[in-house]
Structures are given as C-alpha cells and as structure tokens.
C-alpha cells in the first residue's frame, strides 16, 4: 500500500496542495515576522485574518470586483494593525494579552458582521487559477508550480521581497535596530515608536491579505471562524523560521505539505487512523525545528518589551 504514496501523481498532488495551503501562512507569517523583528509580538493575527477575510468576501459578493475586495481587505488589516500598534506601542500593553483580545474581537466581529450583512454562506466567484503561459504546460512541474491562483504567486514573491527589505534597505535596518537595541536606535535619532507602528501595520496588512486569500481565492466563501487556528500556526512559523524569510517559507511549506501528505494517506486508504495522521504536521514541525534550531537563533532582544525612554 505504501508504495502508492510514491506514485508521481500523488507526489505532484502533495506538492501542489502544499503550495496552495502554504499561501495564507506565508502572507501572515512573513508579515508577523516584520512585527516581531521590530520587537512587537502580535498574537492577534487570527483575528485580523478573520476580519479581512470577511471584508474581502463581502466586497466581492456585493461588487464582484476582486481587486477592490483585496484592497479593502488589506485596508481592514491595516486598521487592525493600527489598533494593535496603538495598544502595543503607545499604550505599552502586555503583547500576548492584547493579541488574545484582538483575536477574540476579530473572531466575534467578523461572525457578527457576516450574520447581519450576509446571513447564510453564499459562494462567490474568486480569483481563478491562472495558468502561466508555457510554464504551466511543463510536464510535472507545470501543474505544481504554475497552475495556481494569482495570490499564490504573490505570496511566494513576498519572500525574497521581505528578505530584501529587511536586509538591504534603510527601513529594514531600522526595523531590526528597534527590535534589537531600541535604546541605541533611539539615541541615533530613530523614532522607535514610528518604526514599530510601520512594522506592525505592515504585518497586519499582510495578515489581511492572508485572510482575503482564503475567502476570495481558496474557498470563495465565508463562514464563522473560517481560519480555524491558522493565525496561531502562522505566529508559530515565525519562530520556526528564526525571523528569516526563507526559513519561514520552508516552515510553511513543510507544515502544509505534511498536512497534504496526511490527507493523501487517508484518501489512499493506508490504514493509519485519521487522528494519528492528523498529528503528523504538528509533530514533524517540532522535530524539524529540533534539528534546525541547533544553530543558535537570535530572538529579537526587545521582542514583547515596550520601549521606555530613559530607562
């Protein structure tokens, strides 16, 4: 039975599913990484994703304009980011807890709005799969890599972009500085608060896009608690990646592909109980990190610590 798993069709299926599943994690995790590198832990990613997912869905339902839906979802994310930044930076609130607040608020409000404005789950037309010309007709790799919806391509494009911004631009330098040694950054005339605001808002905007990628590209529907824990996994993946974009991507791909694998194991009727199969992604992620984390990963020193001038 096991050899079925190694059939080319299955491997292609796992890779294609994995890439697709990884998309929302990529947006959310890469964004969250910015926030954390600047020193702000935002546990509320899930709540932001939910609100944005609803906004995208609602706009798409009413106007059928997917670009507008995506833009407004990003805007909704940014607004939630503004709130997060206000709590974490200006009011110096305990970050783990304000994140839980944002999560609960987003979970409740998105459901409430859905109920009042829409009522019953109604399908919309989302972003179609986009076969990239020539590339998608490539044997084997074509269907895996080049036959996805446009938000999938963007998600993977975000990874090198994030690396570039973080490591090669002044903004990235500032973000890292306020996350490592806010006092030093401050003495150099960098506004710690402003940089953190920017990082947190960027993070929440990306979480917003992550939410939209679910409701208007992947499922084309909205439902109560649509994300069902994805936002928390996304936060965990940032730790997996050790605050480095490419490793975050590896984490997202690993987690998603093992999830796809366990679905294939079940579908092919290989006698593994579904609950045990369901544990695989979580266990393998931890094990992978045990091997990967051997080299000392440096956590942003000021992570979760509000900056107090003159301390």
């Amino acid at each position: 039975m096991l050899e079925q798993l190694f059939a080319p069709a299955v491997i292609i299926g796992i890779l294609a599913s994995g890439i697709q599943l990884a998309t929302p994690y990529l947006y959310a995790s890469i964004g969250e990484m910015f926030s954390q590198v600047s020193g702000v832990l935002n546990l509320g990613v899930e709540g932001v994703m939910l609100i944005a997912a609803f906004v995208a869905y609602y706009v798409a339902l009413k106007t059928s304009n997917l670009i507008l839906a995506l833009a407004l979802a990003a805007l909704a994310g940014a607004l939630m980011g503004l709130l997060t930044a206000f709590l974490s930076v200006t009011l110096k609130a305990e970050q783990g807890i304000s994140g839980i607040g944002i999560y609960l608020f987003g979970l409740g409000l998105s459901d409430l709005l859905f109920l009042v404005l829409v009522g019953t789950p109604t399908a919309i037309r989302g972003f179609p799969e986009l076969d990239l010309p020539v590339l998608s007709s490539m044997p084997v790799l074509g269907p895996i890599l080049f036959s996805q919806n446009i938000l999938v391509y963007f998600a993977f494009a975000c990874v090198p972009l994030a690396w570039f911004v973080l490591n090669k631009t002044t903004l990235g330098l500032k973000v890292r500085a306020v996350g490592q040694t806010p006092e030093a950054a401050d003495s150099l005339g960098i506004s710690v608060a402003r940089v953190r605001y920017i990082a947190v808002i960027v993070a929440a905007t990306m979480a917003g896009i992550a939410g939209a990628s679910l409701s208007i590209a992947m499922f084309n529907i909205f439902q109560q608690n649509l994300t069902s824990g994805m936002g928390f996994i996304a936060v965990a993946l940032v730790y997996f990646g050790g605050w480095r974009p490419f490793r975050v991507m590896l984490g997202a791909l690993l987690f998603s592909m093992v999830n796809a694998l366990q679905l294939w194991i079940q579908t092919l009727g290989i006698g593994l109980p579904s609950d045990i199969a369901g544990m695989l992604p979580y266990i393998l992620t931890i094990i992978a990190l045990i091997f990967a984390a051997r080299q000392i990963v440096t956590q942003p020193t000021a992570l979760t610590k509000p900056f107090e001038r003159g301390e």
Partner: peptide, 14 residues
C-alpha cells in the same frame, strides 16, 4: 474549512 477543502482537492486529484 481549509483542511476540508484540501481534503476535497486530494480526493479529486486521486
């Protein structure tokens, strides 16, 4: 919902 939709995807692919 995400996992269920991937499960459907997997079913169809197989």
């Amino acid at each position: 919902v995400a996992l269920m939709s991937q499960a459907a995807q997997t079913q169809i692919a197989s």
